[in-house]
Protein backbone atom coordinates (compact mmCIF):
# COMPACT_ATOMS: atom_id res chain seq x y z
CA UNK A 1 0.00 0.00 0.00
CA UNK A 2 2.77 2.31 0.89
CA UNK A 3 4.28 2.17 -2.58
CA UNK A 4 1.30 4.10 -3.90
CA UNK A 5 1.68 6.87 -1.40
CA UNK A 6 3.31 9.37 -3.67
CA UNK A 7 6.47 10.82 -2.32
CA UNK A 8 5.64 10.49 1.35
CA UNK A 9 7.27 7.11 1.82
CA UNK A 10 10.67 8.15 0.53
CA UNK A 11 10.60 11.33 2.56
CA UNK A 12 9.61 9.29 5.59
CA UNK A 13 12.73 7.17 5.32
CA UNK A 14 14.95 10.24 5.26
CA UNK A 15 13.25 12.01 8.15
CA UNK A 16 12.81 8.87 10.22
CA UNK A 17 16.54 8.53 10.74
CA UNK A 18 16.85 12.10 11.97
CA UNK A 19 14.08 11.97 14.58
CA UNK A 20 14.21 8.38 15.71
CA UNK A 21 12.96 9.24 19.19
CA UNK A 22 10.03 11.48 18.26
CA UNK A 23 9.97 12.91 21.79
CA UNK A 24 7.43 10.31 22.87
CA UNK A 25 8.37 10.63 26.54
CA UNK A 26 7.60 14.36 26.50
CA UNK A 27 3.94 13.69 25.68
CA UNK A 28 3.32 10.70 27.97
CA UNK A 29 0.96 12.70 30.21
CA UNK A 30 -0.74 14.62 27.39
CA UNK A 31 -4.36 14.04 26.36
CA UNK A 32 -5.60 14.43 22.79
CA UNK A 33 -9.26 14.62 21.65
CA UNK A 34 -10.72 14.14 18.18
CA UNK A 35 -13.66 16.39 17.34
CA UNK A 36 -15.40 14.92 14.31
CA UNK A 37 -18.49 16.46 12.71
CA UNK A 38 -19.96 13.53 10.79
CA UNK A 39 -19.88 9.72 10.80
CA UNK A 40 -22.59 8.88 8.29
CA UNK A 41 -20.62 7.45 5.37
CA UNK A 42 -18.07 4.72 4.74
CA UNK A 43 -15.17 7.17 4.40
CA UNK A 44 -15.78 8.65 7.86
CA UNK A 45 -16.28 5.19 9.32
CA UNK A 46 -12.90 4.14 7.93
CA UNK A 47 -11.40 7.35 9.29
CA UNK A 48 -12.72 6.68 12.81
CA UNK A 49 -11.52 3.07 12.57
CA UNK A 50 -7.98 4.08 11.59
CA UNK A 51 -7.90 6.76 14.27
CA UNK A 52 -9.06 4.29 16.92
CA UNK A 53 -6.31 1.82 15.95
CA UNK A 54 -3.59 4.49 15.96
CA UNK A 55 -4.81 6.01 19.22
CA UNK A 56 -5.16 2.69 21.00
CA UNK A 57 -1.64 1.65 20.07
CA UNK A 58 -0.22 5.04 21.06
CA UNK A 59 -1.93 4.97 24.46
CA UNK A 60 -0.80 1.38 25.05
CA UNK A 61 2.79 2.36 24.18
CA UNK A 62 2.62 5.30 26.59
CA UNK A 63 3.11 7.91 23.86
CA UNK A 64 0.08 9.87 25.12
CA UNK A 65 -2.19 9.48 28.14
CA UNK A 66 -5.47 9.57 26.20
CA UNK A 67 -6.66 9.99 22.62
CA UNK A 68 -10.45 9.96 22.67
CA UNK A 69 -12.73 10.38 19.66
CA UNK A 70 -16.00 12.32 19.72
CA UNK A 71 -18.48 12.71 16.87
CA UNK A 72 -21.41 15.13 16.74
CA UNK A 73 -24.69 13.54 15.74
CA UNK A 74 -26.20 16.20 13.52
CA UNK A 75 -23.27 17.72 11.59
CA UNK A 76 -24.16 21.15 13.00
CA UNK A 77 -21.60 23.89 13.64
CA UNK A 78 -23.30 24.98 16.89
CA UNK A 79 -23.13 21.43 18.20
CA UNK A 80 -19.46 21.10 17.29
CA UNK A 81 -18.60 24.50 18.81
CA UNK A 82 -20.18 23.35 22.08
CA UNK A 83 -18.24 20.10 21.82
CA UNK A 84 -14.95 22.01 21.47
CA UNK A 85 -15.84 24.13 24.53
CA UNK A 86 -16.47 20.94 26.50
CA UNK A 87 -13.07 19.63 25.45
CA UNK A 88 -11.41 22.81 26.73
CA UNK A 89 -13.18 22.38 30.07
CA UNK A 90 -12.19 18.71 30.21
CA UNK A 91 -8.59 19.81 29.98
CA UNK A 92 -7.42 18.19 26.77
CA UNK A 93 -4.00 19.37 25.61
CA UNK A 94 -4.75 19.14 21.90
CA UNK A 95 -7.87 18.92 19.75
CA UNK A 96 -7.84 17.27 16.33
CA UNK A 97 -10.64 18.80 14.33
CA UNK A 98 -12.53 17.65 11.25
CA UNK A 99 -14.73 20.73 11.00
CA UNK A 100 -18.35 21.16 9.97
CA UNK A 101 -17.50 24.61 8.56
CA UNK A 102 -14.29 26.42 7.59
CA UNK A 103 -15.36 29.62 9.38
CA UNK A 104 -18.25 29.00 11.78
CA UNK A 105 -16.05 27.25 14.36
CA UNK A 106 -13.36 29.95 14.42
CA UNK A 107 -14.73 31.45 17.66
CA UNK A 108 -14.57 28.17 19.53
CA UNK A 109 -11.15 27.39 18.05
CA UNK A 110 -9.83 30.77 19.22
CA UNK A 111 -11.17 30.07 22.73
CA UNK A 112 -9.27 26.79 22.71
CA UNK A 113 -6.05 28.47 21.56
CA UNK A 114 -6.43 31.14 24.24
CA UNK A 115 -6.83 28.38 26.83
CA UNK A 116 -3.52 26.91 25.66
CA UNK A 117 -5.05 24.01 23.75
CA UNK A 118 -3.40 23.14 20.43
CA UNK A 119 -5.96 22.81 17.63
CA UNK A 120 -5.05 20.77 14.55
CA UNK A 121 -7.67 20.84 11.79
CA UNK A 122 -7.51 18.29 8.99
CA UNK A 123 -9.60 17.17 5.98
CA UNK A 124 -12.26 19.88 6.46
CA UNK A 125 -10.02 22.62 7.84
CA UNK A 126 -10.76 25.91 9.67
CA UNK A 127 -9.45 29.34 8.70
CA UNK A 128 -8.65 30.56 12.26
CA UNK A 129 -4.91 31.48 12.12
CA UNK A 130 -4.05 29.99 15.54
CA UNK A 131 -4.98 26.48 14.37
CA UNK A 132 -2.84 24.10 12.32
CA UNK A 133 -4.23 23.00 8.96
CA UNK A 134 -3.53 19.62 7.38
CA UNK A 135 -5.10 20.09 3.97
CA UNK A 136 -5.24 18.22 0.74
CA UNK A 137 -4.43 20.10 -2.44
CA UNK A 138 -7.84 19.40 -3.94
CA UNK A 139 -7.24 21.82 -6.83
CA UNK A 140 -4.23 19.74 -7.82
CA UNK A 141 -6.35 16.60 -7.59
CA UNK A 142 -8.82 18.00 -10.14
CA UNK A 143 -6.00 19.09 -12.41
CA UNK A 144 -4.35 15.66 -12.31
CA UNK A 145 -7.62 14.04 -13.42
CA UNK A 146 -7.64 16.10 -16.62
CA UNK A 147 -3.88 15.62 -17.13
CA UNK A 148 -4.44 11.88 -16.99
CA UNK A 149 -7.32 12.08 -19.47
CA UNK A 150 -5.09 14.08 -21.81
CA UNK A 151 -2.49 11.29 -21.84
CA UNK A 152 -5.13 8.64 -22.51
CA UNK A 153 -7.34 10.58 -24.94
CA UNK A 154 -4.98 12.94 -26.78
CA UNK A 155 -7.63 13.75 -29.38
CA UNK A 156 -9.94 15.05 -26.61
CA UNK A 157 -13.73 15.04 -26.59
CA UNK A 158 -16.78 15.64 -24.42
CA UNK A 159 -16.56 15.22 -20.64
CA UNK A 160 -19.21 14.85 -17.96
CA UNK A 161 -18.34 16.36 -14.61
CA UNK A 162 -19.76 14.87 -11.41
CA UNK A 163 -19.41 17.30 -8.56
CA UNK A 164 -19.75 16.71 -4.81
CA UNK A 165 -21.97 18.41 -2.28
CA UNK A 166 -22.90 21.96 -3.32
CA UNK A 167 -21.63 24.65 -0.95
CA UNK A 168 -18.70 22.67 0.47
CA UNK A 169 -15.22 24.09 -0.14
CA UNK A 170 -13.82 20.71 -1.24
CA UNK A 171 -16.35 20.59 -4.07
CA UNK A 172 -15.38 24.05 -5.29
CA UNK A 173 -11.65 23.28 -5.08
CA UNK A 174 -11.76 20.00 -7.05
CA UNK A 175 -14.05 21.54 -9.65
CA UNK A 176 -11.72 24.53 -9.91
CA UNK A 177 -8.82 22.17 -10.60
CA UNK A 178 -10.79 20.32 -13.24
CA UNK A 179 -11.69 23.55 -15.01
CA UNK A 180 -8.06 24.74 -14.79
CA UNK A 181 -7.05 21.45 -16.41
CA UNK A 182 -9.62 21.92 -19.19
CA UNK A 183 -8.26 25.40 -19.86
CA UNK A 184 -4.84 23.81 -20.31
CA UNK A 185 -6.06 20.92 -22.45
CA UNK A 186 -8.52 22.73 -24.70
CA UNK A 187 -9.31 19.58 -26.70
CA UNK A 188 -11.71 18.67 -23.87
CA UNK A 189 -15.10 20.24 -23.28
CA UNK A 190 -17.40 19.75 -20.29
CA UNK A 191 -20.84 19.18 -21.79
CA UNK A 192 -22.69 18.42 -18.57
CA UNK A 193 -22.26 18.88 -14.83
CA UNK A 194 -24.28 17.30 -12.04
CA UNK A 195 -24.00 17.10 -8.26
CA UNK A 196 -23.55 13.53 -7.01
CA UNK A 197 -23.06 14.43 -3.33
CA UNK A 198 -20.12 11.93 -3.18
CA UNK A 199 -22.69 9.11 -3.01
CA UNK A 200 -23.11 6.32 -5.58
CA UNK A 201 -26.93 6.34 -5.54
CA UNK A 202 -27.23 10.14 -5.84
CA UNK A 203 -24.64 10.22 -8.64
CA UNK A 204 -26.40 7.38 -10.45
CA UNK A 205 -29.70 9.27 -10.31
CA UNK A 206 -28.21 12.57 -11.46
CA UNK A 207 -26.25 10.99 -14.32
CA UNK A 208 -29.27 8.97 -15.49
CA UNK A 209 -31.25 12.21 -15.64
CA UNK A 210 -28.76 14.21 -17.69
CA UNK A 211 -27.50 11.46 -20.04
CA UNK A 212 -30.42 11.57 -22.50
CA UNK A 213 -29.64 15.21 -23.30
CA UNK A 214 -25.88 14.69 -23.76
CA UNK A 215 -23.91 13.96 -26.94
CA UNK A 216 -21.31 11.16 -26.86
CA UNK A 217 -19.18 11.39 -23.74
CA UNK A 218 -15.57 10.12 -23.76
CA UNK A 219 -14.68 10.75 -20.13
CA UNK A 220 -16.16 11.37 -16.70
CA UNK A 221 -14.32 13.50 -14.14
CA UNK A 222 -15.41 12.81 -10.57
CA UNK A 223 -14.69 13.69 -6.95
CA UNK A 224 -14.74 10.26 -5.30
CA UNK A 225 -17.57 8.00 -4.21
CA UNK A 226 -19.48 8.59 -7.42
CA UNK A 227 -17.71 6.61 -10.16
CA UNK A 228 -19.56 3.33 -9.73
CA UNK A 229 -22.94 5.10 -9.83
CA UNK A 230 -21.91 6.82 -13.06
CA UNK A 231 -20.86 3.48 -14.58
CA UNK A 232 -24.24 1.95 -13.63
CA UNK A 233 -26.10 4.88 -15.20
CA UNK A 234 -24.15 4.58 -18.48
CA UNK A 235 -24.83 0.85 -18.56
CA UNK A 236 -28.55 1.33 -17.85
CA UNK A 237 -28.80 3.86 -20.69
CA UNK A 238 -27.14 1.38 -23.04
CA UNK A 239 -24.23 3.70 -23.73
CA UNK A 240 -20.59 2.61 -24.10
CA UNK A 241 -18.64 2.99 -20.84
CA UNK A 242 -16.48 6.12 -21.05
CA UNK A 243 -13.20 6.60 -19.20
CA UNK A 244 -14.41 7.21 -15.65
CA UNK A 245 -11.96 8.55 -13.06
CA UNK A 246 -12.59 6.65 -9.83
CA UNK A 247 -12.33 7.59 -6.15
CA UNK A 248 -10.75 4.62 -4.31
CA UNK A 249 -14.01 3.03 -3.07
CA UNK A 250 -13.81 -0.73 -2.93
CA UNK A 251 -16.87 -1.22 -5.16
CA UNK A 252 -15.29 1.08 -7.75
CA UNK A 253 -11.98 -0.80 -7.61
CA UNK A 254 -13.78 -4.14 -7.90
CA UNK A 255 -15.76 -2.90 -10.90
CA UNK A 256 -12.51 -1.63 -12.43
CA UNK A 257 -10.84 -5.03 -11.98
CA UNK A 258 -13.84 -6.78 -13.54
CA UNK A 259 -13.80 -4.42 -16.52
CA UNK A 260 -10.04 -4.80 -16.87
CA UNK A 261 -10.31 -8.58 -16.95
CA UNK A 262 -13.24 -8.46 -19.39
CA UNK A 263 -12.07 -5.82 -21.87
CA UNK A 264 -8.78 -4.30 -20.72
CA UNK A 265 -10.40 -1.20 -19.19
CA UNK A 266 -7.81 1.28 -17.95
CA UNK A 267 -8.32 4.25 -15.68
CA UNK A 268 -7.00 6.11 -12.64
CA UNK A 269 -8.35 6.27 -9.09
CA UNK A 270 -7.49 8.98 -6.60
CA UNK A 271 -8.87 10.33 -3.35
CA UNK A 272 -7.82 11.41 0.12
CA UNK A 273 -7.13 8.46 2.42
CA UNK A 274 -9.30 8.27 5.58
CA UNK A 275 -6.08 7.52 7.45
CA UNK A 276 -5.38 11.28 7.39
CA UNK A 277 -6.82 11.20 10.94
CA UNK A 278 -3.81 9.15 12.03
CA UNK A 279 -1.53 11.71 10.38
CA UNK A 280 -3.30 14.46 12.34
CA UNK A 281 -2.78 12.44 15.52
CA UNK A 282 1.00 12.22 15.00
CA UNK A 283 1.26 15.87 13.97
CA UNK A 284 -0.59 16.74 17.19
CA UNK A 285 1.80 14.56 19.17
CA UNK A 286 4.77 16.34 17.58
CA UNK A 287 3.32 19.78 18.41
CA UNK A 288 2.77 18.70 22.03
CA UNK A 289 6.34 17.38 22.12
CA UNK A 290 7.47 20.93 21.43
CA UNK A 291 8.46 20.43 17.81
CA UNK A 292 8.38 23.49 15.57
CA UNK A 293 5.55 22.64 13.18
CA UNK A 294 4.47 25.00 10.35
CA UNK A 295 0.78 25.95 10.46
CA UNK A 296 0.03 24.76 6.94
CA UNK A 297 0.76 21.16 6.03
CA UNK A 298 -0.19 19.30 2.90
CA UNK A 299 -1.13 15.65 2.85
CA UNK A 300 -0.59 13.70 -0.38
CA UNK A 301 -3.63 12.03 -1.91
CA UNK A 302 -3.78 8.34 -2.45
CA UNK A 303 -3.47 7.46 -6.13
CA UNK A 304 -4.16 3.99 -7.47
CA UNK A 305 -2.95 3.19 -10.97
CA UNK A 306 -3.50 0.18 -13.20
CA UNK A 307 -0.38 -1.48 -11.71
CA UNK A 308 -1.43 -0.96 -8.07
CA UNK A 309 -5.02 -2.10 -8.60
CA UNK A 310 -4.63 -5.70 -7.43
CA UNK A 311 -2.64 -4.86 -4.32
CA UNK A 312 -5.07 -2.06 -3.43
CA UNK A 313 -8.05 -4.41 -3.84
CA UNK A 314 -6.37 -6.96 -1.58
CA UNK A 315 -5.82 -4.53 1.27
CA UNK A 316 -9.20 -2.75 1.05
CA UNK A 317 -11.97 -4.37 3.10
CA UNK A 318 -15.17 -5.32 1.24
CA UNK A 319 -17.38 -2.24 0.87
CA UNK A 320 -14.85 0.19 2.34
CA UNK A 321 -12.35 2.75 1.01
CA UNK A 322 -8.70 2.24 0.06
CA UNK A 323 -6.75 3.43 3.07
CA UNK A 324 -3.32 3.99 4.48
CA UNK A 325 -2.43 4.36 8.14
CA UNK A 326 0.14 7.10 8.67
CA UNK A 327 2.97 6.68 11.16
CA UNK A 328 5.05 9.05 13.25
CA UNK A 329 7.71 8.95 10.51
CA UNK A 330 5.15 9.95 7.87
CA UNK A 331 4.10 12.89 10.02
CA UNK A 332 7.71 13.97 10.49
CA UNK A 333 8.24 13.76 6.74
CA UNK A 334 5.18 15.91 6.05
CA UNK A 335 6.36 18.45 8.65
CA UNK A 336 9.90 18.48 7.22
CA UNK A 337 8.45 18.92 3.73
CA UNK A 338 6.52 22.02 4.80
CA UNK A 339 9.47 23.75 6.46
Amino acid sequence: MKSILMGAATLALMAGAVHAEGHSAATADKRIALSNNYAGNSWRQAMLQTYAETAEAAVADGVVAAADAFTTSENQTTEQAAQIQNMILQGYDAILLNAASPTALNGAVKEACDAGVKVISFDSIVTEPCAWRIAVDFVEMGRQEVDYLATRLPEGGNLLEIRGLAGVSTDDAISQGIHDGIAEHSQFEIVGSVHGDWAQDVAQKAVAGILPSLPDVVGVVTQGGDGYGAAEAFAAAGRPTPLIILGNRQDELKWWAEQRDANGYETLSLSIAPGVASLAFWVGQQILAGEDVPKDLTVPFLTITQDDLDSALETTPEGSVANVSYTLEDAQAVIAGAK
Binding site: G40, N41, S42, D197, Q200, D201, V202, Y228, G229, D251
Partner: peptide, 13 residues
Protein backbone atom coordinates in the same frame (compact mmCIF):
# COMPACT_ATOMS: atom_id res chain seq x y z
CA UNK B 1 -30.43 -3.50 -4.43
CA UNK B 2 -30.74 -1.03 -7.30
CA UNK B 3 -27.62 0.99 -6.57
CA UNK B 4 -25.27 -1.86 -5.66
CA UNK B 5 -25.37 -1.75 -1.87
CA UNK B 6 -26.66 0.16 1.14
CA UNK B 7 -24.89 3.39 2.09
CA UNK B 8 -25.29 5.15 5.42
CA UNK B 9 -26.52 8.35 3.78
CA UNK B 10 -28.69 6.71 1.14
CA UNK B 11 -32.03 7.87 2.55
CA UNK B 12 -31.02 11.48 3.18
CA UNK B 13 -32.66 13.08 0.17
Amino acid sequence: SFSGGAALNMGAE
